[in-house]
Design a binder for these strands. Sequence first.
DNA 1: TATGAATGAGGGTTCATTCAT
DNA 2: CATGAATGAACCCTCATTCAT
Lengths: 198, 198, 198, 198
Amino acid sequence: MGKSDLNKKKKREALLNTAFELFTTQGINKTTINNIVESAGVAKGTFYLYFKDKYDIRNKLIAHKAGHIFSVADQALSQTQLTNLEDRIIFLADNIIEQFNADKSLLNFISKNLSWGIFKNELISSGDDNDVDFYNIYTILENSPETFKNPEILLFMIVEFVSSTCYSSILYNEPVSIKELKPYIFDAIRQIIKSQRL
Amino acid sequence: MGKSDLNKKKKREALLNTAFELFTTQGINKTTINNIVESAGVAKGTFYLYFKDKYDIRNKLIAHKAGHIFSVADQALSQTQLTNLEDRIIFLADNIIEQFNADKSLLNFISKNLSWGIFKNELISSGDDNDVDFYNIYTILENSPETFKNPEILLFMIVEFVSSTCYSSILYNEPVSIKELKPYIFDAIRQIIKSQRL
Amino acid sequence: MGKSDLNKKKKREALLNTAFELFTTQGINKTTINNIVESAGVAKGTFYLYFKDKYDIRNKLIAHKAGHIFSVADQALSQTQLTNLEDRIIFLADNIIEQFNADKSLLNFISKNLSWGIFKNELISSGDDNDVDFYNIYTILENSPETFKNPEILLFMIVEFVSSTCYSSILYNEPVSIKELKPYIFDAIRQIIKSQRL
Amino acid sequence: MGKSDLNKKKKREALLNTAFELFTTQGINKTTINNIVESAGVAKGTFYLYFKDKYDIRNKLIAHKAGHIFSVADQALSQTQLTNLEDRIIFLADNIIEQFNADKSLLNFISKNLSWGIFKNELISSGDDNDVDFYNIYTILENSPETFKNPEILLFMIVEFVSSTCYSSILYNEPVSIKELKPYIFDAIRQIIKSQRL
DNA sequence: TATGAATGAGGGTTCATTCAT
DNA sequence: CATGAATGAACCCTCATTCAT
């Protein structure tokens, strides 16, 4: 990679990082391209060399950040000795919840913008160096000796259940704090898994 | 109520109805105050006599619409002979899902903007003639002979679970159509209820 | 007409006058909406209350100015005792040439932007208080005892001939000054008329 | 001519051809330097090695294209046996009209931008390999046994008359189609010539 | 020569908000 | 209460031009 290519990559990353910072602190609507380029220290025109518009950079960020979260959780899981499927899924859920709990603006950003369909599309379409190992998570289900009616639906339901209950609890302590809510969530997950077991 | 008061009420409702129509068809960001007052047939300044800004009218709409949905479901439930708690909750869930399925823009509008905390706040703070009987839904749990660890959490989890899984399925058919997804959802709900039963 | 209506009319005219001033001195491309509103002493948004964009105001100006020129010439003609058709037409041509000669920027503005078709369309479509009596000029031909193969074509040819030869001569003294050119033009006009006489 | 010189010439021609293509299809204002270099397949900076700016390349194109048209007409004339002056001029006019009729975008481009003075200046100033034999056309008048008051003015008037009447007729069919208009134009030309004959 | 990434002033346009009527 | 003309800051985006490579 030439010096110029390296410089380009750096500019692009500066824009991405700045945009994320601003999106999460001020919200997407309130963030202007002006804000982004100013903070990133590049000229306005430069933004348009790398991204089509504000929503283009947002989508790229979402996919990147979401993938990263799964990746971190997966890494942590591989460090454990857990073998039981339910335990492994609960571990992942717990890890992800804690990531969100530790970075609330990240939770806000992703939840407001991510949907299952968009997520899948972005992962597939964006051929950049997204080292997202999201689909590896499937392997948890697939490699398990147990079988399920429909693994994708099961995964989908768990993801939606966790993310939607987390959102309110972590950000607004509603109806209770995440600490209090967790046992309920985990119980529920175990039951959902059971209901789908063949 | 005097003639002038009536006129005022009519203006306010015209603004609310128009705003809802525009929010659901064009999105909130794309809808301008101009659009609203034009369609409502009032002057621009008049808008500010009734609402603080676009987000004020949005919040009022959300609480109103969400309450209405629960109300409709509750009414329908009262027409049935169902006595078993799980059946009653599934009935409500099904009814609400069908309401959303029949009016996708409504689902989109509410899901994008409603959160448990905001919803509760709005219901409490807005003392207007909101005839929302949302909290009646609690009575389903409370009046049941069965008891649960924490009824509000249970309700919260079900609501979040249903609304988040619905969203993706109804609007984007992801991961599967709502028709296919329903049995899984209902199974999961039953399991969640079980997990919380004392 | 209310005070407010009057004020509106004044704003609109201020914009038109300023735009014309700038268009003729700097050219249309170089003139920005910013320039116009600044000189006119109104806010930028105000411009868009009265005109769609730069080209809208240009078109309205062209029709207005072109109509005015014919009107002035026609008025002057009516003050004369000329009866002979050729003489009357030459008189009009001379008058118009002198108007352009006296206001070269006007000539530049109109010639660059006016075409026979656009001119006719604008005259018809723009229902504003354009007191343009352009078509009265037809009456010169129609009321004459002489008849012509095709009066519109004759008029068209004379107008195009005069305006195109004027343009170069008045603005660039090419190939000769307008003073030198005039006799040639008038001779040519007489010949053109003859060629079309039945 | 060295290999490098050849390459340079090729680049320059690529830019000229592409610019003409874009100017005539999209208009000059809408055409950007970006468009030109992209289509021409050269880098952006390269443009500035050959031309000062957009208007520089435009002027060079106009002179070139206008000269070419006269050249083609002149060539065609030399293939005929016509000896009578009027006939020869009418032949040229007809030929040029047909060239424009066959390539309307060319007519649009040249008419909007060409003026007698600019044309002459460009021809004189631009010493490039413009093999324009425009002035040869003078020889038609000069070599004729007949004599005229002022040959340049005569030529000027005919050129302006033809080009301005053509413009409206060919591009907008106003006031009538070029087919219908031609006899009127030719009649008028004959009269103009007569009026200038000594 | 040739490149093309970077620039940044300035373009047109929008729209929430105000306030005199 | 109701109006709507006027505002002007702020928006997104373009594009001619430069200059280090």
